[in-house]
Design a protein around this nucleic acid. Structure first.
Length: 687
DNA sequence: TTCTCAACTTAGGATTGGCGGA
DNA sequence: TCCGCCAATCCTAAGTTGAGAA
């Protein structure tokens, strides 16, 4: 492991050690183990050479794919061969065969018809099937098209808009856009100049000639009645009766059932975002030059439908037409349209639990694991390249090292000025984003990074680097203005081409995946202690997760209610402490009592008191763990890394190894997304 | 070689709804 | 049973990547 990586781990470790020490105070051993055991891990695998599972027949939609599968499974159950180990550890590339087959889980077998509500068909284990290799994404695709935003409902006439103090009736078009602004009135950005300017410009485009002539100054517009009206409406919605709420829920469910699924290659799959984005005012992140612009309503005429030729094509709403219907099975989207703010294309795609997303995800982690094998070689190479005569090569070598060691850096594409907020990544760093300190706080060759990254989240870090890197950076900064590119001979395209040469499939973002996953694995090893109880182990997991989130700079705004909720928790802890000292006092007097009387009854009392103390201590410890966890998490978002960077098999293996129910780590949605990992990883999985 | 665009992943904030405690 | 809180879910913006046009 290179010095830089060492540094990185030192940084992380020292940090976690700190946490750990703090934590030790409330460590407690006698925690009852959660009995619930994961049901996974009993699936059998069949001979890889068996090709029967190939999805070759042309799909005749409609027919119950489930039934079909069941039969397949029955017929195959006997011949299963165990090659599980190989699959998980030796690693058969996901792109290759091995078609193990699916077996019913214990649960399915035993509680056969328990659930009256038709228990969902067996979960399809797509990861046990052959993959497409030729860029084809599916052979059959049928869906119902998108759900459009509800049409605009004009305001009741009593709700007035005032211009320059006088009530004014707006045309429906102008009124609708006005309501978008009114709904955001409480928000800070309606006070921002750019937001107001953009809004006003776009609003005027929707006005009639007369309105345009009258309304010339946003400052003279009074939206408060509208705003009040919407607030009242949302209150009313909250106050609705159970029945009304139930009705809405049912309607949503109906919509979901109808539009929320598609049929792709024999299987019913969940769609991620089947609703078209409603019109509104664009809210970019950070200092976005387009904030406040009108995001227009999407009509059927804007929509491109993608489905297979032999499917039943979705119908556009009566009286309308789709922009286009195409049958492109080299892409995964079902519906697309072009958005008017940036002119980019938006898509309706499948849920992360779908085969098409899952396979890709799995593949991503396999690529990262391959990187693990050649990381040393790559390091050796870039260290060599630091000395190169060619500036281009040196710059590349420095970015390579940044990516490998300071993984929080994204690739950093160039961005069009004036189109988006001014943010940067590795390749697009400017001179003004770093400071060099030959010496800083007792360390040599320190680089200070300070810039806005994706979503305008600030990245700030001080990192000691090797002398050569430092000298190179000095060189790159020579004779440049603050707003000049630091790596002027480099962009993401060049960088990725070079990475591709180092390893097949290697791109800048693979480093993030690799670093995140390897860090989790190593931190879990480091932090998990056998004699800890489950809450303590989960705290360790969260800390490992947190180390990754810090590395990836996954921040969040502290929740608005953070202070309060912390206080509440603290109050609970204090109350619990009082309770504890009371209980202890009682125990003491019971003991004293027992000493004098020496009868069975008092002995029993002592025992009871002792148990009470123990129980309260346990509860207290749980609360304190919770407080620690929450405090440490104040500004850190764990979700992003959990969902996108951490090989789920590491977590699953950890759960299995320590007898932690996987439900404690992954919620329902996450379990669906990572079903493949939960099914295939056993406790000795190594990333 | 550079530019543009399509397709897909990654991201944080807003909203919702379910659950535990009063 | 009601209410407040928080986790889950929804939403959609903002990245990365690579292909193909200019």
């Amino acid at each position: 492991v290179s010095g830089l990586l060492m540094f990185l781990s030192c940084f992380l470790l020292s940090d976690s050690h700190k946490h750990k020490d703090k934590y030790k105070e409330h460590k407690h051993k006698d925690y009852k183990r959660d009995k619930e055991k994961s049901k996974h891990g009993n699936s059998d695998y069949k001979d890889p050479s068996d090709k029967k599972y190939k999805d070759k027949e042309k799909m005749k939609h409609k027919d119950g794919s489930t039934e079909k599968n069941k039969d397949k499974h029955k017929e195959k159950r006997k011949e299963d061969k165990v090659i599980k180990k190989e699959k998980e550890n030796g690693f058969v590339s996901p792109l290759h065969d091995i078609k193990p087959k699916k077996t019913k889980t214990q649960k399915e077998v035993t509680d056969g018809k328990k659930k009256a509500k038709k228990e969902p068909e067996e979960k399809w284990k797509w990861w046990e099937e052959e993959r497409y290799t030729d860029g084809v994404k599916w052979k059959f695709l049928e869906h119902k098209g998108p759900v459009f935003a509800p049409p605009y409902e004009p305001l009741p006439s009593r709700v007035k808009f005032y211009y320059d103090g006088k009530p004014m009736r707006l045309s429906p078009e102008a009124e609708e856009v006005a309501t978008f602004f009114a709904k955001m009135l409480d928000h800070e950005y309606t006070t921002k100049d750019i937001f107001r300017k953009n809004f006003f410009k776009d609003w005027r485009k929707e006005m009639t000639a007369e309105e345009k002539a009258t309304i010339t100054d946003l400052k003279k517009c009074n939206f408060t009645e509208m705003s009040e009206y919407f607030k009242a409406q949302s209150e009313a919605r909250k106050a609705m009766s159970k029945e009304e709420k139930q009705k809405i829920k049912e309607e949503n469910e109906r919509l979901l059932q109808k539009y929320g699924y598609c049929i792709m290659d024999n299987h019913k799959e969940r769609i991620a975002n089947f609703r078209i984005e409603p019109p509104g005012l664009f809210r970019g992140r950070g200092d976005h030059p387009k904030m406040g612009m009108l995001k227009r309503r999407i009509r059927p005429e804007d929509i491109i439908i993608n489905c297979s030729k032999d499917s039943k094509c979705p119908e556009p709403p009566p009286g309308t037409k789709w922009k286009e219907v195409r049958h492109d099975n080299k892409v995964t989207w079902l519906v697309s349209w072009t958005e008017n703010i940036q002119g980019s294309i938006k898509y309706i795609m499948l849920n992360p639990s779908s085969r098409i997303k899952g396979e890709k995800d799995w593949q991503k982690y396999e690529t990262a694991r391959r990187l693990k094998k050649c990381v040393d070689r790559i390091r050796a190479q870039y260290r060599e390249d630091w000395k190169s005569k060619e500036m281009r090569v040196r710059q590349r070598a420095v970015t390579d090292s940044f990516l490998l060691t300071l993984l929080a850096l994204r690739a950093g594409n160039e961005k069009e000025e004036g189109e988006t907020a001014d943010t940067v990544g590795c390749c697009s760093l400017r001179v003004e984003h770093i400071n060099l300190y030959p010496e800083n706080e007792g360390q040599e060759y320190v680089v200070e990074f300070d810039f806005l990254g994706k979503d305008s989240i600030r990245y700030y870090n001080k990192v000691p680097v090797e002398k050569r890197v430092f000298k190179n950076l000095q060189l790159f900064m020579e004779n440049k203005e603050p707003d000049d590119d630091l790596f002027d001979r480099l962009n993401t395209s060049i960088l990725n081409k070079h990475l591709q040469e180092l390893m097949d499939g290697l791109t800048a973002k693979v480093f993030r995946t690799y670093n995140a996953s390897i860090t989790l694995q190593q931190q879990l090893k480091e932090l998990t202690t056998a004699d800890e109880n489950i809450p303590a182990k989960i705290l360790s997991y969260n800390r490992a997760n947190r180390a990754v989130a810090i590395l990836c700079n996954h921040q969040r705004a502290p929740p608005k209610t953070f202070e309060k909720s912390m206080q509440n928790l603290q109050a609970k802890i204090d109350a619990k402490k009082d309770q504890l000292s009371d209980a202890k006092r009682e125990l003491k007097s019971a003991k004293a009592d027992a000493k004098v009387r020496k009868d069975e009854k008092t002995k029993k009392a002592v025992e009871n008191k002792r148990k009470a103390v123990q129980r309260i201590e346990e509860q207290l410890m749980k609360l304190e763990v919770q407080a620690t966890d929450r405090e440490e998490n104040k500004q850190i978002a764990l979700g992003t890394s959990k969902l996108n960077y951490l090989d789920p098999r590491i977590s699953v293996a950890w759960c299995k190894k320590w007898g932690i129910p996987v439900e404690k780590i992954y919620n329902k949605t996450q379990r669906e997304k990572f079903a493949w990992a939960i099914d295939m990883a056993d406790e000795d999985y190594e990333f």
